[in-house]
């Protein structure tokens, strides 16, 4: 193993890791937004919204994220959607992970005992007030860990955008292999950096989970 080579290229990998982090954060924000809207739609009293929510989930969980990215990035211009690779990466991955987060958030909300909603409604709270003051605070506690699992998957999923040439960690590794012919070292370096990002994120999720624990 050529440690000297790894030492020489690793600053460039750090830069690429930074791109992966930014990509992950933006994707997570978009995913949580889509997930919240999706969950709200799935739990709506309007059949149309429930249908839209269910269709969103089944389409985006039912097809490979890579195909979704390709359709958006390569197919997009054909129907008038012009995005650069980074934008397409964030939107493609965000909307994709949002479908998973929809189910996570919905699951946490329905897991709150229905007596809670009943008790709140019985006191005279509206459905919205009961959601906000009684159900959601309890659902939040239930969704931290599973959302952490989604975010873990999302970070690893950012490797896919190498396929549309976003210069992130995986793409960078491939590029350096092209010039060094050292796939073992280059992928190992990328892998270690992914692991660090995921480890730190995992600790963050565990911390958050402890913070929101029910007394």
């Amino acid at each position: 193993m050529d440690f000297e080579l790894m030492w020489r290229v690793y600053p460039f990998f750090l830069q690429a890791a930074w791109v992966t982090i930014v990509l992950s954060v933006l994707t997570a924000i978009l995913g949580l937004t889509c997930g919240s809207l999706g969950a709200a739609a799935r739990l709506s009293r309007h059949a149309i919204l429930r249908f839209i929510g269910a269709a969103y989930v089944s389409v985006f969980r039912g097809t490979p994220a890579l195909i979704q990215l390709f359709i958006l990035y390569f197919g997009g211009p054909q129907i008038g959607i012009q995005l650069n690779a980074f934008q397409a990466g964030v939107i493609g991955l965000g909307v994709n992970i949002g479908a998973y987060m929809t189910e996570t958030i919905r699951g946490a909300i329905v897991a709150v005992d229905k007596g809670q909603m009943e008790a709140a409604r019985t006191l005279g709270l509206s459905k919205f007030q009961a959601m906000r003051k009684v159900v959601l605070p309890q659902a939040m506690r239930l969704m931290v860990r599973p959302l952490g699992v989604n975010i873990n998957a999302l970070i690893k999923g950012t490797a896919l955008v190498a396929a549309i040439s976003v210069i992130e960690l995986t793409y960078t590794a491939q590029r350096y292999i092209g010039s060094t012919y050292r796939p073992f070292e280059m992928f190992l370096l990328a892998g270690v950096l992914y692991m660090i990002i995921i480890y730190v994120t995992g600790r963050g999720v565990a911390y958050l989970d402890r913070k929101v624990r029910i007394v």
């Binding site: 005992d113 809670q116 009943e118 008790a119 709140a120 019985t122 006191l123 005279g124």
Partner: peptide, 18 residues
Amino acid sequence: NQVRQQIGMVFQHFNLFP
């Protein structure tokens, strides 16, 4: 919501907000 404010209800499983 107006009417329910005037009707108190107590449940078998208490349903306190934990």
